[in-house]
Write a protein that binds this DNA or RNA. Structure first.
Lengths: 212, 212
DNA sequence: TTTCATATCTAAGCGCTGTACAGATGCCAT
DNA sequence: ATGGCATCTGTACAGCGCTTAGATATGAAA
């Protein structure tokens, strides 16, 4: 774990302490969970004094914001990948599945992401991929809805559909972590079947397909 | 705010300090938000020493559990009331609306409730009304689904529907607090219309009705 | 009525936290 | 070479969760 280089090898000026601090925070988060993520512990892990982080972040919340930001980038990449691996209507479900799986595989990070979001009462819409055409994860959902038949000119209705899909994914991401639903997963033959079933239960797809 | 009675009026033995501590915690939570909810602050608010709470709660988490428990009771009452005030299919939407409104009106409490749930990776299913026939809020949703046409013998499918409904409500409760959806609410003519629209977008109702 | 075990509270203190501030250090432009 | 500036250290403070030892009140037994 401990990244602290020996005193002689580490120069007084760190090089890129900001980067090192965010990395240290993510290492701690994964290893010890959210409750172990103190500013001082992060500084220790990075091998600097407790006051050093304040030259790169206004306060602890700003450090956590940086960690959360990288979380949203990771989520976006996961969703981008899931979309690329599927075709047709399955793409929307695939987006949802990849969202929930990200939350399952990075529970501490997911919590930091939404704690920050709740504090500022906003989802971070400014997270962008290297290729800005991809937009952020939220826009990806909206674009995918359009690709599969949603009417882009009905802006209000389209945004409503996007919100509904996002709600479903986030809600399911939190519920799927609860123990009382374990038996449901088992009965349905696994987690994947469970997620599919719940998503299918919610009418999130554009309503342009044949019949009911 | 401060509940600390003058030294002479307050006996050495408090009477019901446990009750007083939970009340003090809820007062603090409402007035100052979740971040101000320290054990010491609660003890101060209740007018006792910082160590006193430890005779009634194992640790801070157990105090927060007690606060959360009362939150689930309140939520249950709100949903019970919402169901009583409506009829027919509107009952399900009414349950969802009352859920989201509870989260909107008690954001700090709602956060404490789910923080505790995430920590123990389980929703508290043991919260009961004075009338135990009502069961808890989660069961209420399931029962309401049955009343409106869901097949109670298809247990797995029924539970799936309940999970989907709960996911939708929780997801929407969190999203509805975010600023970027303000304009959507405005365009739809108010919060109530927004919530209705999102719920309607998700096919959460039993599928026994006419046509598509 | 006195006695005493027990439940409840206080006082003091430990190690931790986030944050502030003064000063040391090293890089860069002059 | 020098001086300004960003960066880092050392130290300090108040507040935190929690522990321990001891004070105090209550209710049951004698």
């Amino acid at each position: 774990m401990s990244e602290a280089k020996s005193a002689e090898s580490r120069p007084y000026h760190h090089g890129d302490l900001r980067r090192a601090l965010v990395d240290a925070a993510r290492r701690l988060l994964e290893a010890e969970g959210p409750s172990a993520l103190s500013l001082r512990a992060v500084a220790r892990e990075a091998g600097v004094s407790p006051a050093a982080p304040y030259h790169h972040f206004k306060d602890k919340a700003e450090l956590l914001d940086a960690v959360a930001h990288e979380g949203w980038e990771m989520l976006q990449l996961a969703m981008l990948d899931a979309k690329a691996r599927t075709q047709g209507r399955e793409q929307l479900t695939a987006l949802g599945i990849s969202y929930v799986c990200f939350a399952r595989d990075n529970p501490a990070l997911y919590r930091v992401m939404y704690d920050a979001a709740r504090d500022k009462e906003a989802l971070p819409m400014d997270v962008e991929d290297a290729n800005p055409e991809n937009g952020n994860a939220y826009c990806m959902v909206r674009d995918t809805l359009i690709e599969h038949g949603a009417d882009p000119s009905a802006e209000t209705h389209l945004e409503l559909a996007t919100v509904a899909a996002w709600c479903a994914a986030h809600g399911l991401a939190e519920m799927a972590g609860f123990k009382q639903f374990e038996h449901l997963k088992a009965e349905l033959g696994g987690e994947r079947q469970f997620l599919d079933a719940v998503f299918n239960h919610m009418g999130l797809f554009p309503k342009d397909h044949d019949g009911c």
